[in-house]
Amino acid sequence: MRRASLVSVATAAVLALSTQSALAYGEGDSVEGGADNQEVAAAVTHSQIKISHEGGGGTGKKGNLAPIGTNWKPPACWYEPLLTPKQLKRAVEEDKIDDVGIHESWSNGIFVDHYKEGEATENFDEANTTAPGYKNYNLGKDGYFWRSVAPDENEPKSWDCGRIMFWQDAGTIPDDEHAPTPEVLASYAYDKIRVPDTEVELNPEGKSTVNLPTWVWLDKGTFKDVKVRAELPNTGLWAETTAKPVSLNLDPGTEDAELHPASGECRINDDGSIGTPYTKGEGKETPPCGITYLRASDEPYKLNASVTWEISWEGSGGANGDLPDGTFETDQDMTVQEVQAINR
């Protein structure tokens, strides 16, 4: 039977919204391995993972990758170190913490019962496992209280992390299937990758002619590897996820068209360019990357250009692996006119 003071899920959601301010702790509350003026997010949707970016090719419009051919998602939940004994004591005394897990919030008095007075209680999991209580917030011990994190607490799988906030000695990782790993951090970083827009150079630009090829290209250096590094403080865990551009994929927006090459996949060259820029006099030649429209358009066709990115990662302890390829796409209007006298 759950504790009578357990806040309902609906109420917990409201509380999470009301505790977006951070708990700021100064030097007197820091411990070895911690940071001065550390800020601890009060809501379970706020991860302590630190993200840094590099690369990406340019400063224009960017967007998030969509995994290709899979329902892959980053992890729905995991556990992170949140508070030292001093920080937890202060948070409870100042009534600045209520979330003890993703889907469970407590009143101040229950925090005192469990973390100060040593009263055992149930975890918020299907097995109703018991969480032993603590004496005086574990003051004098070296370690952290860990709590579950869910970027989206409405994700059904976020219920899998059902342990209430628990103690872990410094320098150790919980023996739990939802403990953080380099792969978890790599997946979290994947969700933070931002890649450049895929608007391509065309000739003719924005207006093509039936049965004459439209050349498609991008200058070198437009697409570069994008690296995102994720580090989880006080764990020694890190991962760097790399997105490498490999091909441009064209969809002419109509079945009345021929693609060059026929697959519509233009491989990215070693220098980061795509295709070959159009040169005057080549108007009737077949481009290495392009489209020949076979019928005029009543309304502009939607030319879809998408870049495929291969995703790999490496992390602490020599861990490494691959994640699903991703894509980012852009639509461009293409007006196609009937054959007429032209000078290309």
Rank of each mutant, 00 (worst) to 15 (best):
G60K: 10
V339A: 12
T214C: 14
G272A: 10
Y278T: 06
S148P: 05
E199G: 05
E27I: 04
E122C: 00
T330M: 13
G56Q: 11
V200H: 04
D36K: 13
D152Y: 00
W313E: 13
G69K: 09
A127C: 04
G272W: 07
V200W: 05
V336C: 02
L202T: 11
Q48H: 11
L139Y: 08
E265R: 15
D142M: 04
S8M: 01
A10G: 14
W238A: 01
P204M: 02
K96P: 00
L202Y: 08
Y144H: 12
W313H: 08
R163E: 12
P277L: 06
L139P: 05
K280D: 15
L83D: 02
K192H: 13
G272Q: 14
V149H: 11
E80A: 14
S105K: 11
W215D: 09
Y293M: 01
T241K: 10
A22E: 15
A22C: 10
N304M: 06
T45A: 15
Y293F: 15
D160N: 12
G236E: 02
L139Q: 14
A170G: 02
S158C: 03
N203M: 04
L82G: 07
P156D: 12
W167F: 09
N138V: 03
G275V: 03
K86P: 01
A4H: 11
L323S: 09
N71G: 15
N304C: 04
V210L: 11
I49Y: 08
A186W: 12
C161A: 15
K141N: 13
K86D: 10
T254K: 09
E338V: 00
A42N: 10
L232T: 00
P180C: 12
A66N: 07
E258M: 12
K284A: 15
T335P: 00
P300C: 09
N203C: 02
E231R: 12
G318P: 02
Q340V: 07
G56M: 02
W146G: 02
A120I: 02
V336N: 07
G60A: 13
S30E: 14
N304F: 10
D113C: 00
A35S: 15
Q20P: 00
I164R: 13
W217V: 00
G60V: 13
N304V: 09
